[in-house]
Every structure is written in structure tokens, then in C-alpha cells.
Simulated assay, not measured.
Amino acid sequence: MIPDEHVEALARATHLRDAERRREHATAWERMDASEREANLDSARFAPTILAALGLAIVAGDRQERRTALTPEELEAGARLEHLRWCRFTRSIGRTQHPHLVSWEELDEPVRELDRIRIRALPELLGRLGYSVIDDGAAA
């Protein structure tokens, strides 16, 4: 579990990373409308679930066994889960018409890469917040 203040910090950092990777100017957090902020917060809240589904855990501290990157298979599976999360969130706020509200298989590669960007950054961004992403078996 990540405390609320770290969820917001992760959401902010992910938002900035997304814009950087797309070579876009990031809208300042304070200037984003509430639904944009909530979309980023929802992604940050769900990150531990995605990592757990991949057999990974988030633990406090800089652990020696921390993961600095995900395997290609973990990245792909995590990106698929992030897309499902985004679809669920988007529909939950009443937005039912969007060209990306389709299955993963129907997305083109540039759109899939947007989900990969988010998932790829998790070990580094969580590390900046004082956490380590480790294999779940090493958490004991």
C-alpha cells in the first residue's frame, strides 16, 4: 500500500514523465481540471495492483534486490492491465465515446506505447519516492 501523499506524488511524476516521453509540454498539476487529475490519481492508485499481478511487490526503502526495470513480458502484461484500467476509469466518468475505448488488440502501436510508458516508469518513479519494486517472493 502506498500512502495518499505518495499516490499524489506518483500521479504527478507519471503525468510529467508521460508528457516528456511524448515530447509535449506538461500542463501544470494545479492547472489541470479535476477529471484530468483524477485520471492520473486513479492510475497511481492502481499501480500496486498491476505490479502485484506481475508477481512484484512495492516495499519501503532502498532494497538491494530492487528491480530497476521490468522484463519485456512484464511490461507488455502491465501495459495491457493499464489499458483496461484506463477503459474502466474512462467509462466510470461517463465518457463512452473515445477511439481508444477498444480492446488492446484493436489499438495501434503508438497508443499501446502510451500505456507502456506509464508502466515502464514505475520502478524508477517509486524509487524516487523511497520504495523498491521487488519480486513478490523476496518481500518476506
Rank of each mutant, 00 (worst) to 15 (best):
residue 120 R to D: 10
residue 107 L to S: 01
residue 77 A to F: 06
residue 104 W to C: 10
residue 102 V to K: 07
residue 115 D to A: 04
residue 46 F to R: 09
residue 100 H to G: 04
residue 107 L to G: 01
residue 60 A to K: 13
residue 132 S to V: 04
residue 115 D to I: 05
residue 83 H to S: 12
residue 140 A to Q: 12
residue 98 H to Y: 02
residue 128 R to M: 04
residue 131 Y to H: 01
residue 46 F to C: 03
residue 22 R to D: 07
residue 104 W to T: 08
residue 84 L to M: 13
residue 8 E to S: 03
residue 26 A to T: 04
residue 86 W to A: 10
residue 55 G to K: 13
residue 108 D to I: 12
residue 115 D to H: 15
residue 72 P to C: 03
residue 90 T to P: 01
residue 98 H to W: 13
residue 112 R to M: 10
residue 69 A to I: 01
residue 61 G to F: 09
residue 14 T to H: 06
residue 14 T to S: 07
residue 43 S to C: 09
residue 41 L to Y: 01
residue 119 I to T: 15
residue 22 R to H: 13
residue 52 A to D: 05
residue 120 R to L: 08
residue 42 D to E: 13
residue 95 R to K: 14
residue 102 V to N: 03
residue 105 E to K: 15
residue 76 E to S: 06
residue 88 R to A: 12
residue 96 T to H: 13
residue 16 L to I: 12
residue 139 A to F: 07
residue 131 Y to L: 01
residue 93 I to T: 09
residue 16 L to Q: 06
residue 116 R to Y: 06
residue 24 E to V: 12
residue 73 E to L: 09
residue 116 R to W: 02
residue 44 A to D: 05
residue 132 S to T: 07
residue 103 S to N: 03
residue 106 E to K: 15
residue 32 M to Q: 02
residue 69 A to K: 15
residue 72 P to E: 13
residue 24 E to Q: 15
residue 4 D to E: 14
residue 91 R to S: 04
residue 74 E to W: 08
residue 55 G to Y: 09
residue 95 R to C: 05
residue 6 H to S: 12
residue 43 S to G: 07
residue 133 V to A: 09
residue 133 V to I: 04
